[in-house]
Measured scan of single mutants.
Amino acid sequence: MQIFVKTLTGKTITLEVEPSDTIENVKAKIQDKEGIPPDQQRSIFAGKQLEDGRTLSDYNIQKESTLHLVLR
């Protein structure tokens, strides 16, 4: 499925993911596309910070959902 990741600069990245993917996985995909190390990424969805060990389905993130990426 496709999800979108919006950065603070307003750029939107499209990722191909599975509901079973962990947040860690997703951060690795963002690193592949953007070169941002996962330890600098904070992902926010529906106002909640997403934890690395959880999966997209844990957070009820579905296709075409938009995550927000904040850098630390």
Rank of each mutant, 00 (worst) to 15 (best):
E16P: 03
E24Y: 14
A46M: 14
D32F: 11
K27M: 15
G10A: 00
N60A: 08
G53L: 08
Q62L: 10
E64L: 11
S57W: 07
K63V: 08
D32P: 03
S57Y: 08
T12V: 14
Q31I: 09
L71N: 09
T14H: 05
V17Y: 04
L67R: 00
K29G: 01
M1I: 11
D52P: 09
N60W: 04
L50V: 03
F4P: 02
Y59K: 01
R42G: 13
R54W: 10
L71K: 07
E18H: 14
Q62Y: 08
I30S: 03
T14Y: 07
Q31W: 15
V17K: 00
R42P: 12
K29R: 10
Y59V: 01
Q31P: 04
S57V: 06
M1K: 03
I36A: 07
L69E: 06
M1C: 04
I3E: 01
L50H: 02
D32E: 14
D21I: 05
G10Q: 03
S43F: 15
L56P: 01
Q41L: 15
G35E: 04
Q2I: 15
R72E: 12
E51D: 10
L71V: 12
V70C: 07
R72F: 12
Q40D: 10
Q2G: 04
T22Q: 02
L69N: 02
L15Y: 00
P37I: 08
F45W: 13
Q49D: 14
M1A: 02
I61Y: 00
K29F: 04
T14R: 10
K27R: 09
T7Y: 12
Q40A: 11
V70D: 05
D58I: 01
I23N: 01
E16Y: 13
V5H: 00
Q40I: 12
Q62C: 04
Q40Y: 10
K63C: 05
V70E: 10
M1L: 06
V26H: 00
L50Y: 03
Q62E: 10
Q49C: 15
K33G: 06
T9Q: 11
L71A: 11
N25A: 13
Q62P: 07
L56A: 02
T22P: 01
I30P: 00
F45G: 04
G35Q: 06
I23M: 05
H68Q: 11
A46K: 14
P38Y: 13
L71Y: 10
L69Y: 02
I44H: 06
A28G: 08
I36L: 08
K11P: 04
Q49F: 15
E16H: 10
P19Q: 07
G10V: 01
R72Y: 12
E16N: 11
V17H: 00
P38G: 09
I23G: 00
L71Q: 11
Q62F: 08
S65N: 08
A46C: 12
S65R: 02
K27S: 05
L71G: 08
D52L: 05
P37K: 09
I36R: 04
V26E: 01
F4K: 07
K63R: 10
S20L: 09
S57P: 02
I30Y: 03
R72C: 11
I44A: 03
P38V: 15
L69I: 09
T12R: 08
L69A: 01
D58H: 10
D39I: 10
Q2C: 09
R42V: 15
P38K: 14
A28F: 11
K6T: 10
D39Y: 11
D39V: 09
H68A: 04
S65G: 06
I23S: 02
L15R: 00
I30G: 02
E24P: 02
P19L: 09
K29S: 03
E18C: 10
K29I: 05
F4C: 04
T55D: 02
E18L: 14
S20E: 09
G47E: 08
G10F: 03
R54F: 12
T9L: 10
R54I: 06
N25T: 13
I13Q: 01
G10D: 04
T14N: 05
N25V: 14
G53C: 07
E51V: 08
P38M: 15
L15W: 00
D58L: 00
I61F: 03
S43Q: 13
R42T: 15
H68P: 00
S43A: 15
A46R: 13
K11G: 06
E24N: 07
P19W: 05
A46D: 13
T14A: 09
L56D: 02
R72D: 11
T7C: 10
R72Q: 11
G35W: 04
E18V: 13
Q31Y: 15
Q40T: 10
P38W: 15
I61S: 02
I13W: 07
T7W: 12
K27N: 06
I3Q: 01
I61K: 01
G53D: 12
I3V: 05
K63N: 15
R42S: 13
L8E: 13
P38T: 15
K11S: 08
S65T: 08
S20I: 06
K27H: 09
E51A: 07
D52T: 05
G10M: 01
T22F: 05
T14D: 03
P37M: 08
N60Y: 05
V70L: 11
P19I: 07
D52N: 09
D52R: 03
Q31C: 11
